[in-house]
């Protein structure tokens, strides 16, 4: 299934957000996630179903002012 992860199209096997993080090798506790513009808390990732074309944002701490 094709989804968009951080602005880039990707072919993934995962069907939900938790599985997607595992598939991408990202430690779940070090990032925050959003699906189609809405925040998805850690505990809700496994229940956040990915549809084809879904827009996923995976954000991490970054230098800021």
């Amino acid at each position: 299934m094709r989804v968009e992860v951080n602005g880039k199209p990707r072919e993934v096997a995962a069907r939900d957000l938790a599985a997607l993080l595992a598939e991408l090798g990202i430690a779940g506790e070090s990032v925050a996630t959003a699906l189609d513009g809405g925040f998805v808390p850690r505990g809700a990732r496994a229940g956040a179903v990915l549809e084809p074309g879904a827009k996923v944002e995976i954000l991490a701490p970054m230098q800021g002012g």
Binding site: A32, I58, A60, P61, M62, Q63, G64, G65
Partner: peptide, 19 residues
């Protein structure tokens, strides 16, 4: 100190350590 959130990439670990 103020910090931001950006798309996950390389080098995030070192920054987290500093924080």
């Amino acid at each position: 100190i103020t910090v931001s959130l950006r798309r996950e990439g390389a080098g995030g670990g070192a920054f987290r350590e500093i924080l």
